[in-house]
Design a protein around this nucleic acid. Sequence first.
DNA 1: CGGAATGTTGATATGCCTCAACTAAAGTGG
DNA 2: CCACTTTAGTTGAGGCATATCAACATTCCG
Lengths: 212, 212
Amino acid sequence: MTRQYQPNEDLIRQGDTPKAAALVLSGTVGRYHLLADGRRQYLSFHIVGDMPDAQGLFIERMDHAVCAMDHAAIAFIPHVDIVRALKARPPVGFAIWRETLIDAAIFREAITNNSARPVLARMAHLFCELFYRARASGLAQENRLALPLSLVQLGDALGMAIATVNRTLQRLRATGSVDFRDGVLVVKNWEKLGRVGQFDPLYLHLRKVSPL
Amino acid sequence: MTRQYQPNEDLIRQGDTPKAAALVLSGTVGRYHLLADGRRQYLSFHIVGDMPDAQGLFIERMDHAVCAMDHAAIAFIPHVDIVRALKARPPVGFAIWRETLIDAAIFREAITNNSARPVLARMAHLFCELFYRARASGLAQENRLALPLSLVQLGDALGMAIATVNRTLQRLRATGSVDFRDGVLVVKNWEKLGRVGQFDPLYLHLRKVSPL
DNA sequence: CGGAATGTTGATATGCCTCAACTAAAGTGG
DNA sequence: CCACTTTAGTTGAGGCATATCAACATTCCG
């Protein structure tokens, strides 16, 4: 089953018990925690080919929500079908398992990024990650990437106030390494961006990526 | 194979390619990122019964390190044996898979905790999590828990400077909800601690826990 | 007994948040 | 098609939470 989503529309909510797993066919989706005071904390972003809620296979209730960041097309694959496939062919399961483990690695990096890096490096690091992953999936053209995030959403991902997001974006631009505006990320100097963001792609565990 | 570790000794280092998975038999271990400037960011802590590097099963190189927080006994189970068991009995694999998914949920919560909560709530939340998990494993006696962390380590987990850790600890004590000193956590008022830390245990996905 | 690691406290600095005002663009209804 | 509202982004001023620095106390350990 396939469905279209509007920007900001939820695919799954905190507390739900999904019976099918989402597969991103187009667009970008994000996962987030809803805080007691209504604020959001975005946890990760996902692009074409990702299964952002594969965990639902073995965890009953959602501890976070998943929403579309822009217009997105999502396929839903019933859990029973997946489990049947896993039992028949273990290697299929191992591959999906591995994806969920890489997810976890991305979360770990986010802990470090948001806890230990100053805002400039933090933002640069997120841009590095998103660009690198998109590129590995063949989604980034040359040095640009469609990144449908508002400043508010960027702030809710990086744990910054919106004013800080704005000013940090300007500082980043001033380094000449990257330019993000109007939902488009343009990498001007990949090496420098990586240096500013202290980016080491090891944690993404991509087997082979053509050099940038 | 079983091995004893000294406090602060590494089980596995960033970059390693382990051939066996660690199982905690006694003590506490922690996972951490090593930053470029030598600082550490602790990502999670693990107690008896946990497999802190189950991810090594399907991910070649370690993107983080694992160390003993105090004296710890660790069993190592060769990956080949585990994979053989997985293929023979899929449900065994599903159970381990589920554990790694709960790991990921804990990481997600740490993102939110360190990014969106003020220091008092942040520390309270960590204490809630550790106590709740220990209790679910039958490791906490009554309302106390051995928690072999120094202030520096607490700070490296929560993204706080050591002076702030100290002062926040005192503020927490003043609330009358919890007291942590000399490696022992004493929960004085669980309900209040949960309120201060905005703690909701849903994300730990424990099936049944006797009420506190 | 001396030195290292750990914890404590005060003083000062600063990075980021908050608040507020304003602009620009986009969507809506008369 | 134009006023009207809403949403997104921008900028400045000021305050505060937390980092940084420094001195000192304490315990541990060889």
